[in-house]
Design a protein around this nucleic acid. Structure first.
Lengths: 239, 239, 239, 239
DNA sequence: GATGAATGAGTTTTCATTCAT
DNA sequence: GATGAATGAAAACTCATTCAT
């Protein structure tokens, strides 16, 4: 579903499987190779995750230095590799780790019983903004991760994205009352246009925030801007 | 305007300044620091540009090796730095150089007298596909360049993007017959939705092409898909 | 005596002390420092010895990883060092352990009552080939061990070799009927020449086997080749 | 031919091609990839070769540290890799470099017109001892190199050895007066036995020297010992 | 006895950039 | 203008050994 994905890369994804609270990859056992790390007390886990995330987010995959990470995390060089084997695995682990965290959080909050399409989207936009404020580092990292195209991790990263972006709009839109949409145009195309609109809007918001002094986001303004889009879309696509 | 930008990164840009055949940056004097290079005979210029572009496109900014570039171009290490001072400047120069090339070509082809909004966009889509076929290397490089987020060049690159994406819809849409649009909604928002739609569509096409066997792009299919969007957009946004 | 040594490194050694079934080093108490290990049940001992031997044989002393050994043996890192103190001692222990095994086996088989020099050697060659087939891993390891020249273990290894190669031809040749040798030349030199010949022959066989497809050894051919040497040596050195 | 090879590894080789003063490998163009290094003034070349040789000889391939080499040679880290690409190439280069040096020197000295087999060998033994004294480091390195079995360089090193050990006794023994040998035994076997004898004798000498205080070699003693072998071999193999 | 997390100095290799020629 | 040898900091990763549990 678009709301989460456009937090990070603007690709619509299917979140249904995650609703139960298990991450896709965790459920698939991909975390087994990081068992050593996951057995640590959460204070240390957090210290490491934050240090690593900070470095990757700041410098990207290639330039990020494992030396800096261990210095920041206060652990030895060997230990990082003891947990994560190599830089690539460390990176891919972190992508999953963050993704799972974000998805689980989102689904705790969204109300999936709301049948009106635009109301549901409106709520999702608000949840998204809340989370952006609460976990800015994670979103920064995720955003970079989905743009990352370092040769070494590209294939695995693309595969991971594909796993996470297995589009299934049918499921996402379950419970939505489609009778409100006008009948003279292709509904699938209409839904895509709406999705695209909010994704691009989000991108613009993030993009502008980057260049704003202090990178602060004016949420009130975004909501107002979103309402403008809601107004047009409802008028044009509902009958 | 979206057509060019979504060739490379999906950000809407202002092309008006380029129509006269001078690149934004060239016009602004940014090429002065590469005067030595630009004074070379064009055969040597091309040899160097192609070698450098190839390396950057293949490996990204960080991993690209100046050694490989000079080997491929058949020039000495010192000479490259004589022309371009350092790797960062070399990269930024190349971004401009390619961008100018693409923009000039685009404006030679587009018919700016067509008053119908959708017809103009349709033509732009076709031109874009033509150019993608004709200059695949340049587009590959530009695409990578706009995704590049190596820490070292990021600030300059973002600035450059901003310069190139200083949105000025009013100018782009000059000559367009707006009387065809329905009057009960905000026209600016409508134009944004339409722009967003084609940008996202392009992104999807490129994304799918990445995973298609052989990365080939089915242009006929894209045109057909675009027509589906035209159909909905015209029905909903024209009166 | 050459037969055993050229199994492993082509240096003539004195085997008399081993005939009683005790290894040189074991008899000398050098095994005391590995008492903890030797007290284990033999199943576990074997598991560890095999895992360690495999790793050392495959990668040599330097590159062999204690991590791999404990993984293969199914024991903990700490335990390996509990038994063997450090990598060097582990290696030297294994050299002795294998050597003792090979020597004991050899002396169970050889007939020391045969008085004819060449007949005794002929039998030894056959025993050697039998054992090479039966314990290829041990021989592979021993062969590598005697070639090993990693700086760290070199002094001890050389010392060990010396202990094992303390030449005492007089004892080895006991019971041999020397009256068959011609009297006009120095018998000691003659015996050395014969010894050298079979050692070098063995080396050549092993060397050729290395490059043969599949490394297989053609034993029939070796026996035939040995007979050619026997023929010349008997004609020239017997009267 | 045995004399040279048993200087370093005891394998008989064909030296005929080297007589003209060009190394096998140099002649084959294998030195092209080290052209940068070979273009240096010989003072610097020597400084580097000696530093590298010293480190490899002392510690073997694996343990030898390129850090130590550059420190000893007084050059920068990058420069070593500028000349030799990587540690493996550096090692293999040095093997060739030394081998060529030794072979060329040997052939300047040996008198190939001497028809008597034993006289020719006697001279070779003397030349060998002379060279051992003159270039002890090179011989130390070569000896180690031929024993080296580090996994990484093994295949290339074995190939190199094969190139150098392409046995061609026929050519080496050209000009030798075989009529002096007894006719009732296989001459080829006889020649092998003699070759083996001197090779093993050399090995023993080197081996003993290793453990002698100060590693000094008593050349007079060796010559005397060699004479004992000559005496037996002449009596038994000449008619 | 048994565990395995933790250490940190060590390794080889890369690479943009400089500068004497 | 043109060369390419020279630099040296920085990178990712390894691994024997220790020690608290």
């Amino acid at each position: 579903m678009f709301i989460l994905t456009d937090l990070v890369n603007g690709i619509t994804i299917e979140l249904t499987d995650m609703v139960n609270g298990l991450g896709i990859l965790r459920a698939k056992g991909a975390f087994r190779m990081f068992a050593k790390f996951l057995r640590l007390d959460s204070e240390k886990q957090d210290r490491i995750v934050n240090a690593v995330m900070k470095e990757f987010a700041q410098k990207g995959y290639e330039r990020a230095s494992t030396n800096e990470m261990v210095k920041e995390a206060g652990i030895s060089k060997g230990l990082l590799f003891h947990y994560f084997q190599n830089k690539k695995q460390l990176y891919l682990f972190l992508v999953d780790y963050c993704y799972d965290m974000v998805v689980a959080e989102f689904y705790k909050k969204i109300d999936l019983t709301e049948p009106d399409f635009f109301k549901r989207i409106r709520e999702a936009v608000h949840i998204k903004m809340e989370m952006l404020t609460q976990y800015p580092d994670i979103f920064k990292f995720m955003e970079e991760a989905f743009l990352e195209d370092a040769a070494e991790i590209k294939p695995e990263l693309e595969k991971k994205k594909r796993e996470m972006t297995d589009i299934n709009m049918g499921k996402f839109f379950e419970g939505i009352d489609y009778s409100k949409f006008r009948a003279d145009v292709d509904l699938k195309i209409v839904l895509k246009i709406i999705t695209f609109t909010f994704e691009k809007m989000s991108e613009e918001v993030l993009y502008k925030a980057k260049f704003a002094p202090g990178h602060e986001i004016n949420y009130a303004e975004i909501r107002q801007e979103a309402e403008q889009y809601f107004d047009v879309l409802i008028k044009c696509f509902y009958h």
